[in-house]
Every structure is written in structure tokens, then in C-alpha cells.
Deep mutational scan, measured.
Amino acid sequence: HFTSQQLQELEATFQRNRYPDMSTREEIAVWTNLTEARVRVWFKNRRAKWR
């Protein structure tokens, strides 16, 4: 589960860029205190939901 702060950060990034690269995902991981893998999976799932 994600905190509302984490989701806000993830959503804001998603609005700007639906396909963040590795370095962007790592930055998000640092800001949100999540692993890069969790961030990558979140984006994958979010893109699926967005379609």
C-alpha cells in the first residue's frame, strides 16, 4: 500500500511522463522512500489502468 503522499508524487510524475526511465524511477524511489522496482510496477499498472 502507498501513502497519499507517495501516490501524489507518483501521479504528478505520471501526468508529466508515462514512461519514466531508470534514473527518473530511481529519483522517484528516493523521494517516495520506495524501491525502484515498486515504482516500476506502479507505473506499469498505472499505464494499464490509464488505457
Results as ranks from 00 to 15, higher is better:
W31S: 15
T32Y: 07
I28T: 02
R46N: 02
S23E: 14
Y19W: 11
W50P: 05
R46M: 06
I28D: 00
T32N: 08
H1D: 11
K49V: 14
I28N: 01
F2Y: 12
A48D: 10
R47E: 03
R51G: 09
I28C: 03
N33C: 07
T13Q: 15
W42T: 01
R46P: 01
Q15P: 05
L10E: 00
D21I: 04
I28L: 13
N17T: 08
R47W: 04
N33A: 07
W42P: 00
T32Q: 06
L34K: 04
V41E: 15
F14V: 03
K49Y: 09
A48H: 09
L10T: 00
A29C: 06
R47N: 06
Q8V: 10
A29Q: 02
N17A: 06
Q15W: 08
F14N: 05
W31I: 15
D21W: 04
N45A: 14
P20Y: 04
F14I: 01
W42I: 01
A12N: 10
R18L: 04
A29Y: 03
F2G: 02
S23M: 12
E9V: 15
L34P: 00
Q15K: 11
T24W: 06
A29E: 00
R18S: 06
T24Y: 07
Y19G: 01
E26A: 11
M22R: 15
R25Y: 07
A37K: 13
R46S: 03
N33L: 06
R51L: 15
M22D: 05
L7A: 06
F2M: 10
F2V: 07
N17K: 03
S23V: 11
R16W: 10
W31D: 09
V39N: 00
V41W: 13
R40P: 00
L34D: 03
Q6M: 06
V41K: 15
T32A: 08
W31Y: 14
Q5E: 13
W50K: 06
N45R: 13
F43H: 00
A12V: 08
T35C: 05
F2W: 08
Q5V: 10
D21G: 07
W42D: 00
W42L: 02
E36W: 04
R46H: 03
W50E: 15
A12I: 11
E9L: 15
R46E: 07
L7W: 10
W50M: 09
L7S: 05
E27Q: 14
I28G: 01
L10K: 00
W50Y: 08
W31M: 15
N45K: 14
A37C: 08
L34M: 09
K44W: 09
F2R: 02
N17R: 03
K44M: 10
R16Y: 09
L10M: 06
R16P: 03
E27G: 07
S4C: 14
Q5F: 14
Y19D: 04
T32E: 02
Q6N: 04
R51N: 11
V30L: 14
D21E: 04
A48F: 08
R46L: 01
W50L: 10
A37W: 13
S4L: 12
L7M: 08
F2K: 02
Q5G: 08
L10R: 00
N45Q: 14
F43Y: 06
F14M: 05
K44I: 15
R16N: 11
D21Y: 02
V41C: 09
Q8L: 12
H1I: 11
W42V: 00
R25Q: 02
P20N: 00
E26S: 10
S23Q: 14
T32I: 13
R18N: 06
Q6S: 05
L34H: 04
A37H: 11
E9G: 10
E26N: 12
Q6G: 02
E26L: 14
K44Y: 13
Q6P: 02
N33K: 10
L7T: 07
V39M: 00
R47L: 08
R18Y: 06
R38S: 13
E11M: 04
P20I: 01
T24G: 05
E11C: 07
I28Q: 01
V41L: 13
Q15E: 09
W42C: 04
I28E: 01
D21A: 06
K49Q: 13
R25M: 09
E11A: 02
T35D: 08
Q15T: 09
K44H: 10
F14D: 02
E27R: 13
S4R: 14
H1E: 12
W31P: 01
R18H: 14
R46W: 05
W31G: 09
Q15F: 06
L34E: 01
T32H: 07
F2Q: 03
N17F: 06
T35R: 02
T35K: 03
T3P: 02
R40G: 05
R18Q: 13
E9C: 14
K44D: 06
R18G: 04
S23L: 11
R46Q: 06
F14Y: 06
V41Y: 11
A48Q: 09
E9A: 14
A12R: 13
T32G: 03
W31N: 14
R46D: 04
R51K: 13
R25L: 10
Q6W: 05
P20C: 05
R47Q: 07
V41M: 14
A29I: 03
A12K: 12
A12P: 02
T32K: 01
Q5W: 14
R46Y: 02
R38N: 11
A37I: 12
V30H: 11
E36S: 06
S23I: 12
Q5L: 13
S23P: 10
L7I: 12
E11T: 03
T3M: 04
P20L: 02
K49E: 15
V30F: 13
V41R: 15
E27V: 10
R38V: 15
R18M: 14
E9D: 14
R51Y: 14
E11Y: 04
Q8R: 13
E27A: 12
L34T: 14
Y19I: 04
F14E: 02
V39I: 09
V30A: 14
W50G: 06
E26T: 12
V30G: 10
Y19E: 03
A48N: 08
P20E: 03
E9I: 15
R38D: 14
S4A: 13
V30E: 14
A37S: 11
F43P: 00
W31L: 15
N45I: 14
A12Y: 09
K44C: 07
R40L: 05
S4D: 12
S4N: 10
R38P: 02
F43A: 00
A48E: 12
W42F: 04
D21Q: 06
D21L: 04
D21M: 05
T13V: 15
L7N: 07
S4P: 14
R25N: 02
R18T: 05
K49A: 10
E27I: 11
L7E: 11
R40H: 07
A29R: 03
Q8N: 10
R46T: 05
N17G: 05
Q8Y: 11
T24H: 08
W31R: 15
R51M: 13
W31C: 11
F2E: 03
T32C: 09
L7V: 09
K49M: 10
E36H: 03
P20W: 05
M22Y: 13
D21F: 02
Q8A: 14
E9K: 15
R25D: 02
L34V: 07
Y19F: 12
E27W: 09
L10Y: 04
V30R: 14
V41T: 12
E27D: 08
F43G: 00
T35Q: 04
V30P: 01
